[in-house]
């Protein structure tokens, strides 16, 4: 854990992973999308609209996955007080929010032909909606504090409270839908997936996962670089005075120093 927690080492590791991950991501998306959109059979009831599933299911899965990563980052922020964990939490949240948004949008698009309505208060869709709100709250906390390390810890506390609540929310929403819609089209255990649709779905899941790795590592690197610039005094933090700005000499040094650090 502590070996990994060294930022310089982390950046070097990220630089080694990134090209591989990017290549893998590209390949997986190419084959996955081709298989999902062209090769795989259409549903006998839903027709081609079933293909939304190949985007919707991976996004919904990634929405959950990102929240878990966020909570793990929050846990390390609170326990080890390491800036790397702070950066990780801030890096992963917008990705999670985007996946959650994508899951909601595709769910709504898929719902129109399936249920005949853009939105149905189905248990899983509702849970994802609540997850969306949790992400918004997390990002709002990050935006509300001037002090970065305080923001990181406040957000970490919220992420942990959220992750403990997630199963409760999920359970209560399931409870609520069975109470109110006993005869829902969308059964609690979900529709059965034909075996022929599984390989492209798994490919897409893997593609989304590698896409996450690429974006996450990029955002981590950007976050670490921003942190370093701020520490060196180049990027004025909100409270910094004008007279404390760097001089010319400092600025010249900065470019080389940052390069070395990275």
């Amino acid at each position: 854990m502590h070996w990994f927690a060294n930022p310089a080492r982390f950046v070097r590791l990220a630089d080694r992973i990134l090209p591989v991950a990017m290549l893998l991501c590209f390949g997986l998306f190419a084959t996955g999308l081709y298989w999902a959109l062209i090769l795989s059979p259409a549903d006998y009831q839903q027709g081609s609209s079933v293909r939304i599933m190949y985007v919707h299911v991976p996004s919904a899965y990634m929405a959950m996955f990102c929240y878990l990563v966020m909570a793990a980052a929050g846990f390390s922020t609170l326990v080890w007080r390491h800036p790397l964990a702070d950066v990780a939490g801030k890096a992963v949240a917008p990705i999670g929010l985007a996946f959650t948004g994508l899951a909601l949008a595709t769910g709504s698009l898929w719902g129109k032909p399936m249920w005949g309505a853009w939105w149905v208060w189905d248990a899983r869709l509702t849970s994802v909606l609540v997850l969306f709100f949790l992400y918004l709250g997390y990002l709002a906390i990050w935006g509300a504090f001037d002090d970065r390390s305080k923001a990181a810890r406040a957000a970490a506390i919220l992420a942990l409270v959220g992750v403990i609540n997630l199963p409760i929310i999920k359970f209560s929403v399931d409870w609520w839908t069975t109470l109110h819609q006993p005869a829902s089209l969308f059964r609690a255990d979900g529709p059965r997936i034909d075996p022929s649709m599984r390989p492209p779905l798994y490919l897409m899941l893997a593609a989304f996962q590698t896409y996450f790795v690429v974006i996450f590592l990029w955002r981590m690197k950007a976050g670490l670089a921003a942190l370093k610039l701020q520490a060196l005094g180049a990027m004025p933090s909100p409270k910094q005075n004008h007279e404390q700005r760097h001089d010319q000499h400092h600025e010249q040094n900065l470019a080389t120093r940052t390069e070395e650090a990275l």
């Binding site: 709100f133 709250g137 709002a140 906390i141 509300a144 305080k150 506390i157 609540n165 209560s172």
Partner: peptide
Amino acid sequence: GLTVAVRRGGALIALLVLPLYIPTLIF
């Protein structure tokens, strides 16, 4: 507690806490 040091924390409290109130509301 999370918003105590935040200026205009009231709206933020609503965003943070209302989603977490859902299970209580449901039951």
